[in-house]
């Protein structure tokens, strides 16, 4: 499964998902009213040190956050230009800290564990007909569909280039949508053939094994 999880045995990995999530929520609330740059910078350094739990790989993967860094630098300049440099500095430190901590939780928690931890929160959805089984199935479908859709788009683009010699760009989005939706219909049919989202478990008509002809 594609995931941001970094396998490891650190102490932070060993804390279970529930407490980690709760701790993250608590810290976010605590950090929010901070308005002194010193405290914000301290929190940021602590987060940076905590991050060592995921080792070099963790710091390296932080590079994926580059767009956020640009955004934060932009934000700081914006604050400086409008004469609120100090509050901008606090904001940037605070945001960095929160992002680091949240990312740390993500890097050290398996997706399955995260899902299990969230199960109590999701249970009420049962009442509107969304069972945890359906959620799991939907997640699997999304992860499965994503590469299929990219493949479809690439094929379509290649076919267009072969016939015109030009890059396709947005003009292929409509045929792509129709193609993708057809795929969805086929998938629905195949899912129904395998018992649908609810499976065969609770088909009373099927008790006692398969009737023989």
């Amino acid at each position: 499964m594609i995931s941001a999880y970094i396998p490891g045995e650190s102490w932070f990995h060993r804390i279970s998902a529930g407490p980690k999530l709760l701790g993250l929520c608590a810290l976010t609330v605590l950090l929010f009213p901070v308005d002194k740059p010193g405290i914000a910078a301290l929190a940021f350094s602590v987060a940076l040190v905590l991050f060592s739990a995921v080792g070099w790989e963790g710091y390296r993967r932080l590079m994926a956050l580059r767009p956020v860094v640009y955004l934060l630098v932009f934000l700081l300049i914006f604050h400086a230009l409008t004469g609120t440099f100090v509050s901008g500095l606090v904001t940037v430190f605070r945001l960095f800290t929160m992002i680091l901590l949240a990312t740390l939780v993500t890097f050290t928690t398996r997706m399955e564990d995260m899902l299990d931890a969230l199960n109590p929160v999701l249970t009420p959805l049962n009442f509107i007909g969304i069972s945890s089984r359906r959620i799991a199935l939907a997640i699997a479908l999304v992860i499965r569909f994503t590469p299929v859709l990219i493949g479809l788009a690439e094929e379509l683009g290649a076919a267009y280039r072969a016939r015109t010699g030009k890059r396709a760009g947005p003009r292929l989005t409509a045929p792509f949508a129709v193609l993708a939706l057809r795929t969805a219909d086929h998938v629905s049919e195949a899912l129904a053939a395998r018992g649908g989202a609810d499976g065969f478990e609770d088909t009373a008509e099927f008790d006692g094994g398969l009737p023989k002809k």
């Binding site: 053939a193 018992g195 088909t203 009737p211």
Partner: peptide, 8 residues
């Protein structure tokens, strides 16, 4: 019994 049939 479409479900049972789909099962078979």
């Amino acid at each position: 019994a479409p479900k049972a049939a789909a099962r078979a």
